[in-house]
Design a protein around this nucleic acid. Structure first.
Length: 876
RNA sequence: GUGGGUGUAGCUCAGUUGGUUAGAGCACUUGCUUGACAUGCAAGGGGUCGUUGGUUCAAGUCCAUUCAUCCACACCA
C-alpha cells in the first residue's frame, strides 16, 4: 500500500526533501521554449544580509507568480542573484578588521579586495541557501552577482556610453559626505531625523560702521567658511548694506553682503550667513554671486589647519569652542532651543556633512524624460497604481545623481588621469596611456554607487551587452516584485537605465508590497530586537505556514503585521489540509486511479462540489492575473475548509462506507479529483504540502510543479445541482440551529417532516439529515397537518417539522420565532420600498429588480409559515 | 511645505467594475471524546464601515470637508 501520509503533519520531514528533488529534476529552469515568456529578476539581496521577513515576503510573492505562470504553460524564468552592496559590505569588513586592529591602509587596496571577495564566498552563499528554505523556484544555474564578470562589463559599457553622450560628468559640486564611511553618498541615501538643536543668534560688525548685522545659525562651526552674508533684494531694512562688507568674527575675513531671492524676509532677521562649501543652498547662492568656496573640514569632519585655534577639533567640539569664543568676544546675542531635521547616513547613522568635492555625476534631466513618459502612458504599470504618483513626483524633481564613492569594494570608475598634463580618458580598457604625452595613466581610485550596477540588473543578468539568446527570449522582463521603500533607489533607476541602454522598458508591471511589521506594528529592526527570523518560523510551523501568513488576506502595497497567533492559524490550516488528505487516502480502494468519473451520472452533492470547484478555478485565476494574491488565497482557504472539509467530506461519509458500489467508487473519484485539483490551485502558495499530498494521491505526471493549472470548463458547470444543495445545506443549518438554541442533545434523534413543494431537491438525501442533523428518519411531504408535538423550522425553500416539542422552552422558542418574523417582515418592507421607487425599477439592472421581487415572494411565504408556527406553538 | 496611505467587530485585517441581510482569523459564549483533524466539530453574541455634507435608483466602495494616525519627498539659515 503506497498511499499513506504520516499521522501528524510534520513539514520538516518533507520540505527540504522536495526542494532538492525539484531542483535536481531541473524544474526551476525555463522548459517551454517557444511559448510566451514570463520573466522575473529577483531583487538581489545584499551579501551582508541574513534572510529577514522582508526577503521572505518578497520572494514568496515572486515564487507564487512564477509557479502559477509555469503551471499555466509559460516559458518561465526567475533569475536569482546577489548584490555586492558596496558601502554596507565595506563597512562590515572594516568593522571586523577594526576588531583585529587592522586598517584598510594596512592591507592596501588589493589586500582589502581579497578579503572582501573572501567575505562574499562565505556570506554571499549564506543568503542564497536561506532563500531555498522558503521554496524559491528560481533558476540557480543562472545565478548572478553584481560584481561578476558579466555585470562588471555591463557597468563599464554603460559608464562609457553615458560619458560619451555627455550624460556623465565630473565636477566640483556639493554632495553629502559621511565622515564615518569617508565617502560621498547620494541624496537618496540620506535619512533625515528630527533632532533637538539650537539657534545661535550672532552679530557681525559692518565694516567702517558702528552697525551690526544680526543673524542666526544652527551650525556655528560653519562660520569659518562663510564667504558672504545674504539678504532679500526687496528687503528695505538692509538695502543700504548690500554691496558693503562685514567682518567675520573669529576669522577677521571681510565678506560682502549680497542680495539673493533665496533669503526669506519673514524668517528670523532676514539675514543668512553663506557657507558655500558646507550647505547646498549656500552653494547655489555662491554660484550666483561668484563667491569663494572655503572648505573648513577634513574628510573626517575635523577643522582644517587653516584655523589654528580650532584645527583638529571635531566639528561638534569646534562648535562648543567657537560658541564660547563668540560669547567672550561679544558676538553671541542669544541662544534659542530649536528642533530641526538633520541628515544622517543611511548606513551608519552619522550626521552627514554637506561638502564641496570633486565627484562623478549622472546628468538626469535627459534620462528622466522617457522614464516619465513610459509610466504616464501606462506602458509600465505600478500595482497598486498610487505608487506611480510617488515615482513620477520623484522623477519630475530629480537632481543629478552623484555616482562616485570613496570606497574600494565595487566597480572601479573606468576613468584615467595623466599626472603630467591632467588629461582625462574614459575607457573600457584596463589601462590607459595618455594620448598627449604617451605616459601611463592613473585610474580613478573611486568606485561606483552600488545602485549604478543594480540599475542594470534586468538586462545585465540576461547577458547584456552581448546579444544573448536569453536577452532575446526573456527581455523585457514581465514583473518586478519589490517593496515600496526602494522605488526611488532602485526601480526608478532600472526604468531609465533600461530605456536608455536597451531601448526597452525593463519590465511591464511593478508589483509593490509593503513592509512586514511586528505584532505591535513596529518596523522590525536590529536595534529594537523585535525581528522575527523566518527560519525560526519555518522550523516551528513549516514553510507553507509562513508563506500562507505572509500572503493570506494581504493587499498590494500595504504593510502587514505578523504574530505567533497568525503563524499558528496558518499552521492549523496546513494541518487541516493534511488531515483531509489523510481521510481521503484511507477511504480509497487500491485500484483507485486519477481518472475523472463520468460527471453526468453523479449525484447532486458531487456535481455541487465539482461546480463549486470549477467556479473557484476561474476566480483564483482571475485574482492571480490581477495580482490579487491575498484574495485568491483566502478563497482557497474558504473552499478547502468550509466547502470541501466541513460539507463535502461530511456529505459523502455514508457513501464511503458502502464498499463495492458505484456510488462508493464515484465518491472516491470525486474526492481525488477535487482534492488534487485544489492542491494544484494552492500549489503556488503552499508548494510543499501540496506536492506531498498530490504525490500520494492517485496522479498522472511527475510533479505537481509541472502539472497544468486547473481551468474553468463548462463540463463542470452544474447550476441546478448547486442551487439544490444550497437548499439542503440551508435546511441542515436551520435544524442544527434550533436544536442548539434549545439545547437538544445530538443523542436525541428525531424524525423529520420536510414540507416542500420541491420534493425532488430533498429526495434521496436522507443520509445527510441523519448524519448531519441528528435525524432518525426523513419524510418529504407536500403538506403536514398541525402537530402539537413538533416545532417548526422555516427556511426559504421548505418547512421542517421536528417532534421535539417536549424538549423546548416555549417562551424562548416564541421569542426566536418572533424575532425571525420581525426580520423577515423587515426584509419585505425594505424590498417593497425599493420597488415602489420608480427610478430604481427604471434604472437598476433588471436582474436586481427581479431579485427584489422574488425576495418579496420568498419572505412573504416565510412570514406566513412563521405566523403559522407561532400559532402552533401557542397550542403546545 | 508638497504628495500619498490608513481609519470597517474587543484585536489584526479582507472587502475586486458602486448592487442581496458587510466578511475572515484570533479572542469571547454555549454544546460536543461525531473512527481525518481538540492544530478539531456545531451553534451563537459582537460593527449607525472615523466626522459632516454631496453625487447616484443604489455608497463601506465615487466626490468634497474635517478629525486622527502613519509614510515619502522637500526643508528656513
Amino acid at each position: 500500500m503506497a498511499r499513506q501520509l504520516e499521522k501528524t503533519y510534520n513539514p520538516a520531514e518533507f520540505e527540504d526533501r522536495l526542494y532538492t528533488e525539484w531542483s535536481g529534476k531541473g524544474y526551476f529552469k525555463p522548459a517551454k521554449p517557444g511559448a510566451e515568456a514570463f520573466t522575473i529578476v529577483m531583487p538581489p539581496p545584499n551579501i551582508t544580509g541574513q534572510l529577514h521577513m522582508g526577503h521572505a515576503l518578497d520572494n514568496t510573492l515572486q515564487d507564487i507568480l512564477v509557479r502559477y505562470k509555469r503551471m499555466c504553460g509559460y516559458n518561465t524564468l526567475w533569475v536569482p542573484g546577489t548584490d555586492h552592496a558596496s558601502i554596507a559590505t565595506e563597512a562590515k569588513i572594516v568593522e571586523a578588521m577594526r576588531k583585529e586592529g587592522v586598517t584598510k591602509e594596512d592591507l592596501g587596496r588589493d589586500g582589502f579586495l581579497e578579503r572582501a571577495w573572501e567575505w562574499n564566498r562565505v556570506y554571499g552563499g549564506r543568503i542564497t541557501e536561506q532563500l531555498k528554505k522558503i521554496g524559491t523556484s528560481c533558476d540557480w544555474s543562472r545565478q548572478r552577482f553584481t560584481l561578476d564578470e558579466g555585470c562588471s562589463k555591463a557597468v563599464q559599457d554603460v559608464f562609457v556610453n553615458l560619458y560619451d553622450k555627455g550624460l556623465i560628468y565630473r565636477g566640483n559640486r556639493i554632495i553629502n559626505w559621511c565622515p564615518h564611511c569617508l565617502t560621498s553618498i547620494s541624496d537618496a541615501e540620506v535619512e533625515y531625523e528630527d533632532q533637538a538643536g539650537h539657534f545661535w543668534h550672532l552679530r557681525y560688525p559692518v565694516k567702517d560702521s558702528d552697525e551690526y548685522i544680526y543673524l542666526a545659525t544652527t551650525r556655528p562651526e560653519t562660520l569659518l567658511g562663510d564667504t558672504a552674508v545674504a539678504v532679500n533684494p526687496k528687503d528695505e531694512r538692509y538695502a543700504h548694506l548690500v554691496g558693503k562688507t562685514v567682518i567675520l568674527p573669529l576669522v577677521g575675513r571681510e565678506i560682502p553682503v549680497v542680495a539673493d531671492d533665496y533669503v526669506e524676509m519673514d524668517f528670523g532677521t532676514g539675514v543668512v550667513k553663506i557657507t558655500p562649501a558646507h550647505d547646498p543652498n549656500d552653494f547655489e547662492v555662491g554660484l550666483r554671486h561668484n563667491l569663494p568656496v572655503i572648505n573648513v573640514m577634513t574628510d573626517d569632519a575635523k577643522i582644517t589647519e587653516e584655523y589654528p585655534a580650532y584645527a583638529g577639533m571635531d566639528r561638534f567640539e569646534a562648535r562648543k569652542a567657537m560658541v564660547k569664543d563668540l560669547e567672550a568676544q561679544g558676538y553671541l546675542v542669544k541662544v534659542e532651543d530649536h528642533a530641526h531635521n538633520v541628515g544622517t547616513c543611511y548606513r551608519c547613522g552619522t550626521t552627514i556633512e554637506p561638502r564641496v568635492s570633486l565627484q562623478w555625476f549622472v546628468k538626469m534631466e535627459e534620462l528622466a524624460a522617457p522614464a516619465i513618459d513610459v509610466v504616464k502612458s501606462g506602458e509600465l504599470k505600478f500595482i497598486p497604481d498610487r505608487f506611480s504618483k510617488n515615482y513620477l513626483h520623484w522623477m519630475e524633481n530629480i537632481r543629478d545623481w552623484c555616482i562616485s564613492r570613496q570606497l574600494w569594494w565595487g566597480h572601479r570608475i573606468p576613468a584615467f588621469y595623466c599626472d603630467d598634463c591632467g588629461e582625462l580618458v574614459v575607457t573600457k580598457e584596463k589601462e590607459a596611456v595618455c594620448p598627449k604625452c604617451g605616459k601611463a595613466m592613473r585610474q580613478d581610485p573611486d568606485t561606483l554607487d552600488t545602485w549604478f550596477s543594480s540599475a542594470l540588473w534586468p538586462f545585465s543578468t540576461l547577458g547584456w551587452p552581448e546579444e544573448t539568446e536569453d536577452l532575446a527570449t526573456f527581455y523585457p522582463t514581465t514583473t518586478l516584485v519589490t517593496g515600496y521603500d526602494i522605488i526611488t533607489f532602485w526601480v526608478s533607476r532600472m526604468i531609465f537605465s533600461g530605456l536608455e541602454h536597451t531601448g526597452k522598458k525593463p519590465f511591464t508591471d511593478v508589483y509593490v508590497h509593503g513592509l512586514v511589521r511586528d505584532a505591535l506594528g513596529r518596523k522590525m529592526s536590529k536595534s529594537l530586537g523585535n525581528g522575527i527570523d523566518p527560519l525560526e518560523i519555518i522550523k516551528k510551523y513549516g514553510c507553507d505556514a509562513l508563506r500562507f501568513t505572509l500572503v493570506n488576506g494581504n493587499s498590494p502595497g500595504n504593510d502587514m503585521r505578523v504574530s505567533d497567533e497568525r503563524f499558528e492559524a496558518s499552521r492549523n490550516f496546513a494541518n487541516k489540509i493534511w488531515n483531509a488528505a489523510r481521510f481521503v487516502l484511507m477511504n480509497l480502494d487500491e485500484d483507485c486511479t486519477a481518472e475523472a468519473p463520468d460527471f453526468a451520472s453523479l449525484p447532486d452533492e458531487d456535481k455541487w462540489i465539482l461546480s463549486r470547484f470549477n467556479a473557484l478555478t476561474k476566480e483564483v485565476r482571475d485574482n492571480l492575473d490581477r495580482y490579487e494574491l491575498g484574495i485568491a488565497l483566502s478563497k482557497l482557504y474558504d473552499f478547502i475548509w468550509d466547502i470541501f472539509c466541513d460539507w463535502y467530506i461530511e456529505l459523502v461519509k455514508s457513501r464511503l462506507n458502502d464498499k463495492g458500489t458505484k456510488t462508493n467508487k464515484d465518491a472516491q473519484s470525486v474526492l481525488v479529483y477535487v482534492l488534487s485539483g485544489v492542491m494544484k490551485l494552492l500549489h503556488p502558495f503552499m508548494p510543499f504540502i501540496t506536492e506531498e499530498i498530490w504525490q500520494t494521491l492517485p496522479h498522472n505526471g511527475e510533479s505537481i510543479m509541472i502539472a497544468d493549472y486547473p481551468a474553468y470548463t463548462d463540463e463542470l458547470n452544474f447550476p441546478a445541482e448547486e442551487a439544490a444543495m444550497a437548499k439542503v445545506i440551508d435546511a441542515i443549518r436551520a435544524i442544527r440551529n434550533i436544536r442548539s438554541e434549545m439545547n437538544v442533545p445530538n443523542s436525541r434523534k428525531a424524525h423529520l417532516y420536510i414540507v416542500t413543494a420541491d420534493a425532488a431537491t430533498f429526495a434521496g438525501k436522507d443520509a445527510f439529515f441523519t448524519r448531519l442533523a441528528s435525524a432518525s428518519g426523513v419524510e418529504i411531504v407536500a403538506e403536514k397537518a398541525e402537530d402539537n408535538g413538533c416545532v417548526r423550522v422555516i427556511t426559504d425553500a421548505c418547512e421542517i417539522l421536528i417532534p421535539i416539542a417536549d424538549m423546548i422552552d416555549k417562551e424562548e422558542e416564541m421569542a426566536r420565532l418572533t424575532k425571525e418574523l420581525a426580520s423577515a417582515e423587515n426584509e419585505i418592507l425594505r424590498a417593497t420600498k425599493k420597488l415602489e421607487n420608480a427610478e430604481f425599477v427604471a434604472k437598476a439592472p433588471a436582474k436586481l429588480v427581479d431579485a427584489e421581487r422574488s425576495k418579496i415572494e420568498t419572505f412573504t411565504a416565510k412570514c406566513e409559515k412563521l405566523r403559522a408556527a407561532i400559532e402552533n406553538l401557542k397550542n403546545i
